[in-house]
Amino acid sequence: MPDLSVNIAGLPFKNPVTTASGTFGYGDEFRDFIDLGRLGGIFVKAVTGKNRDGNAYPRMAETSSGMLNSVGLQNKGIEHFCHEIYPRIKNFNTNIIVNVSGSTVEEYVEVAERINELDNIPAIELNISCPNVKLGGMAFGTIPSMATEVTAEVRKVYHKVLMVKLSPNVTSISDLAKAVVDGGADVITLINTLLGMAIDAERRRPVLSTITGGLSGPAIKPVALRMVWQVHKAVHVPIIGLGGIMNATDAIEFILAGASAIQVGTANFIDPAASVKIADGIESYMERHKIKHITDLVGALRTE
């Protein structure tokens, strides 16, 4: 049997398949569909300091091979997470990683500090890349000095595995990757959604209430692959890749480009069992190609 286990910055994952924040709720929504214990990890919905109602409806537009969303980090805040959600998810047989978001450096620090106290959360994913909030969010992820600062401030209070999720809405993804590594990031996850928009020509109006939103799905996979590959060459921390992964072949492509693990995102909406099918498909690929350890494939792209 091929060995699918990976170790990312000291944190063991039973396989490289995880689920992307904002596409998997808190995990329990998928209990009817899959055994959560089959997954390497779950990245739960973004948590902010205070309750956020999110953006107005409509928040979604279907596009060619993808979708735009402008949810705007709707969640009930860190205290609700600690008291109401954490107790019901803490014993899942997989790594539970919390996506941490905010509008200010202080808010990121406040949330990270609280999550640091939760024993069964071994890592956080700092979301400096949400395109759908007016303040903060993506601004921290597009200006390298700000990315370094917010990562460094969180690093001071967060003592477990610190992952930082990058935005693709930048000219040089390598510069941002270096900036968060300088700030103390242990792991880089990329990419968040690409900023886009949809127009209703009949009504001559934008489809989304926020006019612009974040594009996800297979439409963004080539961009995501390119960025994973560039970041893999630029920094030496492990990468978790995502962006339009719909099947095992997509996942293998990300691993070859340099990702140590992958996240399944939008695919969860169409097939709630997609993540487990991808884990099975990776195993079949390894058997077919006689690969003993999945780690042998990480960054194994042959370019000459």
């Binding site: 904002g22 309750n51 999110g54 409806y57 969860n268």
Partner: peptide
């Protein structure tokens, strides 16, 4: 009836304002 992506509560796209928020 609202535009939906997932249909089972995880994408938060089909919200409607109620007395308990979105």
């Amino acid at each position: 009836e609202n535009t939906m992506a997932c249909g089972f509560g995880v994408c938060l796209c089909c919200i409607t304002p109620t007395d308990k928020g979105n």
